[in-house]
Design a protein around this nucleic acid. Structure first.
Lengths: 309, 309
DNA sequence: GCCATTGATGCTCATATGAGCAGAACCGTG
DNA sequence: CACGGTTCTGCTCATATGAGCATCAATGGC
């Protein structure tokens, strides 16, 4: 009987039958040390496959690699069956938020389907006395997942705290209007509070016509196509950037209400949440250009990011 | 954080990261005993799934259950992906033959696709000085897998021994011819040798028109249908039996050349090999009516046999 | 409010395990 | 056949682990 076959038998007796290496040795007529060595070999050769099967399972190895490669403080990578990426990632993000130490007192959030799911996954009482402040102009009617305001409000309610909303459109038609709005005492106050936040939680949008910007009429499909042509890979806090993290269209950017990307880059804690293959490109930009210090993503995104050297 | 989630984290650290329970305790802020207990819980709850992935893997638990339920000396149950049952079972049977103790000096074999596969899976030098003797009338032209003779010959060659073939058709048209053939000195000698064998290796055929009996013209599809109508579930050594193991058609049986089923029932070692769902019924009969002392089967057959009380 | 019951927790201790090491067996080479 | 190198084997010993037990906290009945 060759060694590999023996290793299979040892693995079966050890894992399926719960025998000790002593017993296995006696049973198979080998020394207990040989049994132990064969078992180690079986594990190395992949004969023994150990899997953690649970909706909240994580991929610690990938997390470590992502952290190292992109110099992040923390990464959460969750395995997800096709189609359930958003749900699993949102759950993981909620878990991460709940376990953040030190506990955030002010949390600045953007909006999007993903964050809506995160808000939904947060349990009541996930923290106490949180202040949730919006980072950028609100989308008032996102049919798919409620308004941007509801994200902040839900997070605040469940965290037994208050929401500070940014009463402004996401993008204005004229620069002057945008400047006027930002000069408004209320708006300026919110923006200042957002800029001072200790913890940011945000997602990014891909540069395609399914974006919430298009859906809400701030941009047209043509605008998006033009942005893409100029090299945009997606938007962060409503600001379209190219693969290197630079603003693609400064004129458009000047009409966009909300804190700038610099606030993210200098933040103590900026948590980037992403799910789904559509966002692989923008995800790469976010992690490589220092926009976040932590990330929560699905396994396929993580693998994609680690793929190239 | 609830206990189940904690158990998932513990399991990940233990199995994916190879941490000790001590380290896990420190990492998660729990005592090392709690970590150990959560790990045990994770295993019980099925959060940790351990699988032996190998073409020669076996199902020891099922083997034990089959042995106990049907009072067998040994059982080998192998997991098999759809369609590969025959291959996996044949390999396992070959492994079993090779490891039999005491080493068989005379091995009596029947024929069939399954046994052809077993012969094929035997490595050269699987034993030394074996005598392989046929138990029942030979099928001379089995298109699918070579002749019955080749099974015995292959086994004998690879076991560095000799084959003793039964030079006779499986079923004769007239009882008188059958009696005459069995009276022949050579044939009688072979049958006597077969009846004295210490170890038997056989398969059973289902009672359907794809049987080798039909393929070789010994029986017609109508004959099979009639046998089925009379309660036959399949054949063992060419003899058709009902669910209780009784000969269905004594007249046909009297025209069938080969040792009787009594030889199997009184054998020291009778190894029954079966693969595939088509043979579930006849398999049940073989194991419940004492025709074998050992068996090699695929997982689905084993589960089927254990299913009903 | 009191006590019994149940379940969780942290401990002791015997046992199982893996790392490291020394000697044996095996290999091809000269 | 002798030799050096390599792999294998069985061992010692430190460490990791699980069973069993005492204690503690929570729960619920009275």
């Amino acid at each position: 009987m060759d060694d590999e076959l023996l290793a299979v038998r040892v693995a079966e007796l050890a894992y399926d039958e719960g025998k000790t290496q002593d017993e296995i040795g006696a049973l198979l007529g080998i020394s207990r040390w040989k049994a132990g060595r064969l078992l180690a070999q079986a594990r190395e050769l992949g004969i023994v496959r150990i899997e953690i099967v649970h909706p909240r399972a994580r991929r610690l190895r990938l997390e470590r690699e992502i952290c190292e490669r992109f110099g992040l403080a923390a990464a959460v990578v969750v395995p997800a069956p096709e189609g359930l990426e958003l749900e699993r990632v949102a759950q993981a993000a909620a878990d991460l938020l709940t376990s953040l130490r030190p506990v955030p007192r002010t949390l600045a959030v953007s909006w999007g389907r993903t964050l809506a799911a995160v808000a939904d996954a947060l349990p009541d009482g996930w923290t106490r006395g949180i202040t949730v402040v919006q980072t950028n102009g609100g989308v008032t009617t996102n049919r798919r997942s409620g308004t941007a305001a509801s994200i902040a409000v839900t997070m605040a309610q469940r965290g037994h705290g208050q929401a500070v909303l940014l009463p402004s459109p996401a993008i204005l038609e004229r620069v002057e209007t945008k400047q006027a709005i930002e000069a408004d005492r209320i708006v300026a106050g919110v923006l200042e509070q957002a800029a001072r936040a200790h913890t940011y939680l945000f997602t990014a949008g891909a540069c395609d016509a399914r974006s919430a910007h298009v859906e809400n009429g701030y941009l047209t499909a043509d605008d998006i196509a033009e942005l893409a042509r100029r090299g945009a890979v997606g938007d962060v806090l409503g600001r379209y950037i190219d693969a290197d993290g630079n603003i693609v269209n400064p004129e458009l950017d000047a009409r966009t209400v909300g804190i700038g990307l610099a606030a993210l880059r200098s933040a103590d804690r900026a948590i980037y949440v992403t799910a789904g293959a559509a966002k692989h490109d923008i995800a790469r930009t976010v992690v490589t250009t220092g926009l976040c210090t932590m990330t929560v993503m699905d396994e396929s995104t993580a693998r994609k990011l680690l793929e190239e050297s």
